[in-house]
Design a protein around this nucleic acid. Structure first.
Lengths: 330, 330
DNA sequence: GTGAAAGCGCTAACAG
DNA sequence: CTGTTAGCGCTTTCAC
């Protein structure tokens, strides 16, 4: 039913290879012929079949994008940005959701491998050696994780954690808690490492509660442990958990920020709408999505550079943090 | 580099057609031969190239999913559900974002047409005749719009609007306002039609403010008009607008629900987290995503039935609605 | 039950 | 500048 290259060739009285050239190397074809072919193609509604083209060129003009959870509000802006950037570069994007499952991740990469030019692996849960192995089967750009030798895009969460803790310590908090994220998360490990070191340097206590599901329920469920730990301020792995935690604390009769201060990470849209508005470390997710696509696409042209990009984060001070027990007197 | 069917054929000492059968019609091949082939395929890491297969079978095992705005929290749960359902049925999904632009929509459908078995057109902004035309080029399932003769999945927004207005009238409101959605939205027209009729029946005034961008800013920008209209209660096209409106009203010194009551539509996750919690009409978006995928996939097997599915909505009464000027005295 | 051959829609040398 | 030829990886008749 849909027009093929042959239909266009017949209609315009040329060989199919001329039609092919008209689309893939227009400069190699006589201007007059070209416009004739183009006109026929137009009127027949012809569009080159990319899958057929890919069979021979090896380039599908498709990209894969694998995330842990599409419905986690952290991802949609990144997906949107990646999709937009890909389309700008004339590529389409397969989006898949792993439900936070490392096994699904692996399978998905392999399943996509044949029909994409590369995949964006976002916040992977699998281990590094498997990622390295997969990167030999299909070009990979890893987002939210640093893997030696592979192109990566990460947020500077270490700086974010330092800023957050400095903020809390400056407010007079000396008993902190850290709500870790899911097992397998590079970001969670990174935050924990930095937070631990920063707390030690600042000579404040830090109770680590980890791992937790990176969801509101995860934060909610941790509220009791936070209270039991005697912390006056908490840094959460992400905003969702921070929001859940605030709700959990509320249920326990602990107000935020008067009772306990809470800092999130991500700056999802939601964090500006809750009451209290969430103090959080903003992550440039859209920029990350665009950068990852660009790296994947240039990766093909020029394999020498396996760049690793670290994007700046920014502490957004809002209403979920306040003076701690050791605050300077006003 | 990746193993092809030929590699497997050589390795297992059979003709490629036997390997092909092993994967696409296993019952036609000797059990012994089959297991030998499978073993070699496994050890070579062979996976059939779906694009090549599609060239001949005409089935790509890919689906397209087109939405107005990935970052609009209404869509991610639907995308997630659709992707999950598709994978269950061994299909992959291309996701694309039109930025609420009807022209982009059309182009996207055509661009995907050749490499998918069908596309889910979600909340389309283009007109019906174009949709019908496109449905002749590629199987389409329309979500959030009823188009005669095409398979569609919609939410019963009419019932939702009736419920919302009944709720408000019951609360003693007699001056209502409706915040419409974007131009081209079937849902928005449907809500408006029903709301107008329902208001007339109930003998209450209804000021329609439309169209508006379906975003928080859209709601925020409309706050002044709402106040000027003298309405004591508002039904908004979606939760995002409702939330923006509440913020805008707040800025104008009007409290919700004491000054004005607000009802949203969708029941996005966010609506349970705002203060006040939003009264809203819940839309079963995940169910819609799954249903749409199922319809698209069975559409291929059985073209006789072009089902139209209408999913039930449910009014969630929370804290953004309260007694109006004509409330019965307590 | 398996092999041989043709061909899906397209591109990429190679002639001319 | 354009036509010829071969073939990408796979499925599908059709013989055997």
């Amino acid at each position: 039913m849909p027009a093929t290259i042959r239909d266009v060739a017949h209609a315009s009285g040329v060989h199919i290879s001329t039609v092919s050239r008209t689309f893939s190397a227009p400069h190699l074809v006589n201007a007059e012929t070209r416009s004739r072919v183009l006109a026929q193609a137009e009127s027949l509604g012809y569009r080159p079949n990319r899958a057929a083209r890919a069979l021979i060129t090896g380039r599908t003009h498709n990209l894969g994008l694998i995330v842990a959870d599409i419905a986690n509000p952290f991802f949609p802006p990144m997906i949107k940005a990646a999709e937009g950037q890909a389309r700008l570069r004339d590529h389409h994007i397969f989006v898949a959701d792993t439900n936070e499952d490392a096994l699904v991740e692996e399978d998905l990469v392999r399943a996509m491998a044949k029909q994409v030019d590369g995949v964006l692996l976002c916040s992977p849960r699998m281990n590094n050696s498997l990622i390295e192995q997969l990167s030999r089967e299909v070009p990979l750009v890893v987002v939210n994780r640093l893997v030696a030798g592979l192109p990566c895009v990460v947020m500077d969460v270490a700086q974010g954690a330092r800023d957050a803790i400095a903020h809390l310590v400056g407010l007079g908090h000396r008993e902190l808690a850290l709500l870790g994220g899911p097992r397998g998360s590079w970001t969670s490990r990174e935050i924990r490492k930095t937070a631990t070191a920063t707390a030690r340097t600042a000579d404040v206590a830090l109770t680590v509660i980890s791992p937790n599901p990176p969801t509101e329920d995860g934060g909610l469920a941790a509220a009791e442990q936070v209270v039991r730990a005697g912390a006056s301020a908490v840094l959460a792995y992400n905003d969702l958990m921070a929001i859940g935690l605030i709700e959990g604390l509320d249920a326990l009769g602990v107000a935020v920020p008067t009772g306990i201060s809470v800092v999130g990470i991500d700056d999802i849209a939601l964090s500006r709408r809750t009451r209290p508005k969430l103090t959080t470390v903003a992550n440039p997710t859209s920029a990350a999505g665009r950068a990852a696509v660009d790296m994947l696409l240039q990766h093909g042209d020029d394999r020498r550079t396996t760049a690793q990009v670290m994007l700046r984060t920014e502490l957004m001070i809002r209403d979920s943090t306040g003076p701690g027990p050791f605050a300077a007197q006003g």
